[in-house]
């Protein structure tokens, strides 16, 4: 278990210190949100209508950023060999990597989103649901991303391959996440969408580490 925590701590440290880590994910997320009013014009009604979708699209893209750093450098510098020989099962190692990726992407974005809500005129009543939906959904995005990252270790600089692999699987999160926020904004009950979002996330957190570990074992040959 000590190995599990040590791996999370090390990956978070790397995520915070590396360029292209946590700060970049947060900045990228904020930039997308800031750019939208320039593209769509400042009308409150338009912005309010698209805000839930924009926030979730921004979250999806921002969480993609750190994925290339998740396993590729470890495969290149030999850390992955040590992980495979470690007493920690590879599935749990993948889970630790997912947790560290989430802490340096999805978690930060969830905290940042409420501060950006006024830029898109999101209804005040929907702000808590925005943060909650991101907190519930983004762990699943990291888990799915881990599978893509694991498959990507066999491809040098597989950044685009990674995005193409991972993005379609993220669509359910986008649908349920955005509709939960939209429901809250329109005065409807967001509970149902949030439940589906949580279900997607939990499923991804169970399947993701297993699939990622299997992909890492396959890659060696």
């Amino acid at each position: 278990m000590r190995t599990f925590w040590a791996l999370i701590r090390r990956d978070v440290m790397l995520g915070v210190r590396a360029s292209g880590g946590a700060a970049l994910a947060a900045a990228f997320f904020a930039l997308i949100v800031v750019l939208v009013p320039f593209g769509l014009g400042p009308e409150t009604g338009t912005l309010r209508a698209v805000a839930p979708g924009i926030f979730w699209i921004a979250a999806l893209l921002a969480t993609l950023l750190g994925l290339e750093r998740m396993l590729q450098p470890d495969a290149e510098d030999g850390t992955l060999d040590l992980l495979r020989l470690s007493p920690l099962p590879l599935e749990l190692a993948a889970l630790a990597k997912i947790a560290a990726h989430w802490l340096t992407s999805g978690f930060i974005i969830s905290l940042l989103a409420p501060a950006l809500a006024p830029l898109l005129s999101l209804a005040t009543s929907a702000i808590p649901i925005l943060a909650l939906s991101l907190l519930l959904g983004t762990p699943g995005l990291s888990a799915i991303g881990a599978v893509g990252a694991a498959l990507g270790t066999s491809v040098q600089r597989g950044g685009m391959v990674l995005a193409i692999l991972v993005l379609p699987l993220n669509i359910p999160f986008l649908i349920f996440g955005a509709s939960a926020v939209a429901a809250a904004q329109n005065g409807d009950n967001p509970a149902q969408a949030l439940i589906f979002l949580t279900a997607c996330s939990l499923l991804a957190l169970v399947v993701g580490p297993i699939a990622a570990a299997a992909a890492l074992r396959l890659n060696e040959e």
Binding site: A6, E76, D77, G78, D81
Partner: peptide, 27 residues
């Protein structure tokens, strides 16, 4: 113990942090 070509050292981590991490990986 397997000590390969690749040294599993990251520029963002101090040597002591790397050693702690390696110790944890070995258990």
């Amino acid at each position: 113990h397997f000590v390969g070509h690749q040294d599993a050292i990251r520029s963002q981590l101090r040597v002591i942090e790397t050693l702690r991490f390696h110790a944890a990986l070995l258990g």
